[in-house]
């Protein structure tokens, strides 16, 4: 449209008609989005049941479970890893809901409402982060009942870092949601996430792996976050590389999401 079009409403039509604040973002919307998420059994199994199950299988009742791991025991170390795994699945899945909603034509329907695209993405990310928090909280609750021990500051520190850091994967989810127009987006990226988890050392300590594997691992998206999240427990300060890793991947995924998002909402 080349000519300027008045955005204000001519009084003749209906002077009382208003545009909602905050691009349409509101509590009812958030509440209903969370309800939808909780209704999805597959999401709940992947983001809550699976990490707890993995923790119980690999972390409890083993000869190494109660060995020292810094400011706590090995059970706690595995618990943090599994909580990270769960948070990664939850936040990616939450972000990737975009794909499902695009394939069902819901995104298009929303364009016939005052909800702005930016507010829509904010809702998706908020929900993804909420599910991530639930995933971490449930895994930590399971750990506290089954022999995971850490100093109080380590409980708080590891959980907070794992949660905030999983924003990287919320961005990854939104990016994939726009990149892959499919209802089964999580089935497509699921194996990729498992690979990220391996390379991040969540399933097996990286120092038990070969040199090449360790070198490659340093450049993958879970590596930095895993180093940072375990830090309050192990007491081993992560190197600059870990911080750079998180920042760069967050920038890559958020940038990718913004790029696809702009293409998607461009008026064609």
């Amino acid at each position: 449209m080349t000519t300027a079009v008045p955005d204000t409403l001519p009084n003749v039509v209906a002077p009382q008609r208003k545009v909602p604040p905050m691009g349409g973002l509101n509590v009812t919307l958030l509440k209903l989005e969370v309800r939808r998420m909780l209704r999805n059994r597959r999401t709940l199994v992947f983001s809550v049941v699976m990490p707890v199950m993995f923790y119980v299988i690999f972390g409890t009742g083993k000869s190494y479970s109660n060995e020292n791991a810094g400011h706590g025991n090995v059970a706690a170390l595995i618990m943090v890893s599994m909580a990270l795994y769960g948070a990664m699945l939850s936040t990616t899945g939450g972000g990737a809901m975009v794909a499902v909603e695009r394939s069902q034509g819901w995104s298009r329907q929303l364009r016939l409402t005052p909800l702005t695209p930016a507010a829509y993405i904010a809702v998706k990310v908020l929900c993804a982060m909420l599910l991530g928090a639930v995933s971490i909280a449930v895994t930590y609750a399971a750990g506290s009942f089954t022999g995971a021990h850490m100093q109080t500051s380590a409980w708080v520190g590891t959980a907070l870092i794992a949660w905030v850091g999983s924003l990287v994967f919320a961005a990854f989810g939104v990016f994939m949601g726009y990149l892959l127009p499919s209802e089964n987006v999580m089935q497509i990226i699921g194996p990729g996430l498992a690979l990220f988890a391996f390379l991040g050392g969540l399933f097996m300590p990286l120092d038990q792996m070969g040199d090449t594997f360790q070198t490659i691992a340093k450049f993958t998206p879970m590596y930095g976050l895993s180093q940072l999240a375990h830090w309050p427990l192990t007491g081993e300060a992560p190197g600059v590389a870990a911080v750079v890793n998180v920042v760069v991947w967050l920038a890559v995924f958020a940038g990718g999401a913004a790029w696809r998002f702009r293409r998607d909402t461009a008026r064609v």
Partner: peptide
């Protein structure tokens, strides 16, 4: 659309099944 002046019933899609 933002002012609620126009709304539409489309042919298909645009609903969340869950």
């Amino acid at each position: 659309v933002r002012h609620g002046l126009i709304s539409a019933v489309m042919q298909t899609g645009g609903l969340l099944k869950d």
